[in-house]
């Protein structure tokens, strides 16, 4: 006899008189009429709680990590992670020894890498980089008399000496990349292409500061400086 109620309800469902999912949805819809205001109050108050949460500035400081932030997740406390040792980033394979190390057959390169085209724009780029990264010590014209040297940093040699006029291009590239003596490496801040641009500009500087002055050139220089001396733009470069 105790099977009878189950049979009844099953047959009611079959005839479509009781919704199939009614028992499962009872918590929301099946409450007695007197209970409905209570549910509405719960709903409204939970919405209000949500609205309260909006009062804090959590959108300003989202739980993601930004560059240079600290992180409690990693042991060293840094959010920025170093690349895994021994890995090469996409496009970071440096097979061209001439271009990336300034060497050919183990010797410092005397020629320009194939990827480099020396034109005005390239030398101008080198000048911009030189002024930003080198001029504080080496001076704007390469005489080793920059502002940091004036503060007591050991003076680097002038570029305009025979020894440095004769060094291969690869030597200058190598010094920028790895440093030499007191000079730090700058490979952490200057890309290989820009290093070659600096080498090109340095070569241009060396040529520009080592010209035999004949009468024709002297006259030209005098004419040019006469123009420059008239109301200057204040952007004159020393030694030029």
């Amino acid at each position: 006899m105790h099977h009878a109620p189950a049979k009844t309800s099953a047959s009611l469902v079959a005839r479509g008189q009781v919704p199939r999912e009614a028992p499962a949805r009872r918590w929301y819809y099946g409450a007695a009429p007197g209970q409905q205001p209570l549910h509405a109050a719960l709903l409204v108050s939970s919405l209000l709680l949500l609205a309260l949460a909006g009062c804090s500035q959590e959108m300003d400081e989202q739980p993601r990590l930004e560059v240079y932030e600290t992180s409690e997740f990693f042991e060293d406390g840094l959010a920025m992670r170093p690349p895994v040792e021994g890995t090469v980033p996409r496009g970071g394979l440096r097979l061209d020894v001439h271009f990336f190390e300034g060497k050919v057959g183990g010797q410092l390169a005397t020629s320009w890498p194939d990827d480099i085209t020396i034109d005005r724009a390239f030398v101008e780029r080198g000048r911009e980089r030189y002024d930003a990264f080198c001029s504080m010590c080496h001076g704007l014209a390469g005489y080793g008399d920059g502002t940091v040297v004036a503060r007591g940093f050991p003076a680097p040699p002038s570029y305009h000496i025979d020894r440095l006029r004769e060094v291969p291009h690869g030597h200058i590239y190598d010094v920028i990349t790895n440093g030499l003596g007191r000079m730090p490496r700058l490979s952490d801040r200057i890309t290989p292409r820009d290093r070659w641009a600096i080498v090109a500009y340095l070569r241009a500087m060396q040529i520009g500061q080592h010209v035999e002055v004949d009468d024709r050139l002297r006259a030209e220089v005098e004419r040019a400086t006469a123009v420059e001396k008239s109301p200057g733009d204040g952007k004159g470069r020393p030694h030029e």
């Binding site: 560059v67 240079y68 002024d131 930003a132 990264f133 504080m136 502002t147 940091v148 503060r151 952490d188 801040r189």
Partner: peptide, 23 residues
């Protein structure tokens, strides 16, 4: 005083979202 270029220390300022802090 020294006229050090911004990029000497903030070296990713031309290429990245962050200007970069010097190491």
């Amino acid at each position: 005083d020294l006229g050090i270029d911004c990029r000497f220390c903030h070296d990713t300022v031309e290429t990245h979202a962050s200007a970069g802090m010097p190491s």
